[in-house]
Amino acid sequence: MIEFDHVTRTYGPKTAVADLSLAIPRGELFALLGPNGAGKTTSIKMLVGLLHPSKGSLRICGHDVVTNPREAHLHVGYVPDEPCLYDKLTGREFLWFIADMFGMPRHLAGSRIDREIASFELAEFADDLSESYSLGMKQRLVFAASLLHDPDVLVLDEPMVGLDPRSVRIVKDLLAARTRDGMTVFMSTHTLAMAEEMADRVGIMVRGRLRFLGTVMELREQVALEATSLEQLYLELTSAAGVDS
């Protein structure tokens, strides 16, 4: 579903992502971890077409993100770290705009909008202008919009920021259910507990390079320390000594 093929991205003299090769199959929930400035957000921005790779190629469902962006985007839902909405549209109007953008038939769009409004418990404020929403409400609306067209790939950049515990639970349950149905999730997060709980595989990036790729169990075996929690393993792997070794 997602293929990074020797992808490198530079910012002037600085290499943000170096020779990243990664394939994520259908139905997998992949969590990308790493300290600030490791290259996680750059990888996500390349995945959704906001940045082009300096070298290498990136495909979603077989479509090159640079040469066929529209075809690739048709398969993707994206939840950015800072939700962007139209202040002067209501939540429902925003969902209709997204549904129309994906060319969804009217009857189907209507039922899907109702479905997502119910799933994310938006009914109470769906007809208010989004300028009056709190950060958590905006985030829930963006989640609803990203899942409206049942995407094959869902890209999440720090998805739990601003969500209350109940909304976090809703999102976790939804992600689990959707991945069981075959949706691929690519998620960047600093919440290690969530990655440990939900991810099929984790990738740990440090200074633009993928330092580890595998399951949490494999990470434990590789680091072979007394450390038992993902937090301890992560800190060991991303510490200066860990990076240098």
């Binding site: 579903m1 293929e3 495909r59 469902c61 077989g62 479509h63 529209r70 075809e71 048709l74 398969h75 129309d100 953008m101 994906f102 060319g103 969804m104 038939p105 189907l108 899907r112 067209h149 049942d150 094959d152």
Partner: peptide, 15 residues
Amino acid sequence: MNRPVPVGESVRLIS
């Protein structure tokens, strides 16, 4: 390289 996956009937590229 994988072949492009066709999109479902619920979505399409609009004109």
